[in-house]
Write a protein that binds this DNA or RNA. Structure first.
Lengths: 205, 205, 205, 205
DNA sequence: AATGAATGAGTGTTCATTCAT
DNA sequence: CATGAATGAACACTCATTCAT
């Protein structure tokens, strides 16, 4: 009866990719605004041209989009971070490259999807999956630096935790400010951590 | 009409207090493990000897236990933090007192309620309300230090964010280790932040 | 331990009666204001000095107070109606006595418990049980009149239904007006029904 | 994107309409038998082939079906009543047309949905929402008659109340009888009210 | 594939009733 | 008897997921 006309070869395939992406973007927004639990599948598809049913053609469950979001973030960030790391020769340039890359990354994201007026302190929300993935990346980079001896031998876990914590928190503050000052935020974080890591107790390891 | 005068807390009153506390503890655990949204009232009461109905005898809603938890944490931590602050004369002792107090606080809490084998990376969790309240306290203490000129004039928001972030994250790592080393963790955080704050860009105001 | 002092003989018995009555009055108000289903046992006992437990000492269930209320209304109204009926010699005086008695009855009730500002059209309420009982009484009186041939032989069921309907509805309007005009309302109802019953089709029966 | 154009109501659309109607009918029965408060959504859907969830696909809340029921009744009755009123020239024909229309209306309804054996005096019931809507219509018709001077100037509120009361009550009795005698019931009501209104006290107004 | 109605387990919450004190 | 905390079966409603079209 009803027949979908194929306008050009590959059109179908294009649509599939586009739909998959549309769901991902919508999910990014919705999870960011309401948190994983509060967000409903309907909230997500409402921001696309698709139907609930279509959602399940592309992702098997709500959880799966969440995970895909994390993968997506990590996949997009990994090369950036890696490239930045390659140019680094000592701990400072390493740190600066990594933090800078991260801040540029979230600043770019921010421009694409500015926060919705930040209505309330949003009492019961969570980190977006992307953030989680990005933190994973940063963690591995810093672990590597420690391995290669570019930084004093300190409590690795504690250092990693500190760097991630500071970068995350300052990054969050950064994108809340207008204008978004990536330079300034990077400078703050790099100096703080660089001085900090020197002051912290050494371990023989 | 006839009123039974209770000269000392009667058994009934004791039970009520105990039940109220039991619900609070259970809620602390459940919110900690699953986050506010995912946690159900039934999850909470399942960890007590009580019934759904009893829950609502003690708290008017799920939200109310959550808030009560925050109040409870803040109420218990505020005096500790305050006392510590009084003994401090410069930024270092201030920081050490505050961080030490905070770490002792969560370490004590930890002993009472050890984490449940830390099953997975905890997929969809959030901060406990207590943490949030405690962070509020720490924030105000640090803001005060900045006000009184005991620390260099740097970006206040960024500094506060950094301190809270580092303390939180290191605190979390600390309680995951055995034995729990409050001394070491405090030393790490204090040195890192103290050196960091000196290195960070100054602002005129 | 605690001992209830018997101040005078029979005091206990008095209290019991008073409590039973207090519950009844409270229930009358509450059922009237919110309807049977919406009213809760707690709503009722809140208007007494008693406890939930006490409620169940006097009445086995919410349903039972409701029924007791009906019985109470009927018991109080029956003698009044009966006396009025005795003085009547023809249909008019019979009708006038019955309707007058009924209107005086509900007007007196109204004075004791004026309606609570009649906030909204009260979307989902019901008749008070008293009303129901009173209607039963009126019905039996009118049935008797038909039996005794004081009124034309018309469709008995229909006549009874009409009289009850008109009396109820006009009674309700009457108590809503200020001042409450029992005379006027009675006159209206009596004339309407008296003329009506003459005009209505006869049945051989 | 792709849109399936339906030239005639498709099977899906038919099912939707049927389901919507099925819920309405079931609600009509259930509200009629148990009253609004006592009726549960599950009681309603139990009489359909649908699930709880489906109920909420068609109506946003229990209250909404109730209102829809009233609207439905009013919508179906209004034109009938209006047409009847147009043919009337004096109070009698007016009254006869209105009452006749009303009785035909509820008799038709009755044939579609006969009462469930009238089990008991129906302990805690209420008017169906349809009745309420219908009564509103009847009220406005009668108010109009008074306005246009087709009936003596009597207490308007009281007259309206009486007519509605008698029509409702007799109507109820009528549908309980077998066979349902619309003619007879109409005759009874019209004669009663017509004579009654002449006998009732005049007001200058 | 796409659609969106259908499903039903699960959620927060209420309330009649019981029962230890 | 009085008390009021405890109980747990309901309730209205939501939402991830399925499935007929």
């Amino acid at each position: 009866m009803s027949e979908v006309v194929e306008l050009s070869p590959g059109k179908r395939e294009q649509t599939k990719v586009a739909n998959r992406q549309a769901i991902l973007e919508a999910a990014r927004e919705v999870f960011g605004e309401m948190g994983y639990e509060a967000a409903t599948v309907r909230d997500i598809i409402r921001r696309t041209n698709l139907s609930v049913g279509a959602f399940y053609n592309y992702y098997r469950s709500k959880e799966e989009v969440f995970d895909a979001l994390a993968d997506d973030g990590a996949r997009r960030f990994r090369p950036i971070l890696h490239a930045a790391a390659l140019k680094a020769t000592d701990f400072e340039s390493y740190l600066r490259a990594a933090v800078g890359a991260y801040f540029n990354f979230i600043a770019a994201d921010e421009n694409l999807y500015p926060p919705p007026a930040n209505q309330e302190p949003m009492p019961h929300t969570r980190n977006t999956p992307e953030m989680l993935a990005v933190f994973e990346e940063v963690r591995s980079v810093l672990a590597d630096v420690m391995e290669r001896g570019l930084a004093p031998k300190v409590d690795l876990d504690f250092l990693v935790a500190s760097c991630i914590a500071v970068a995350r928190e300052i990054g969050e503050k950064m994108v809340e400010r207008r204008p978004v000052d990536v330079e300034g935020a990077t400078e703050f974080v790099v100096r703080l951590l660089l001085a900090g890591v020197q002051a912290v107790p050494r371990v023989e390891r």
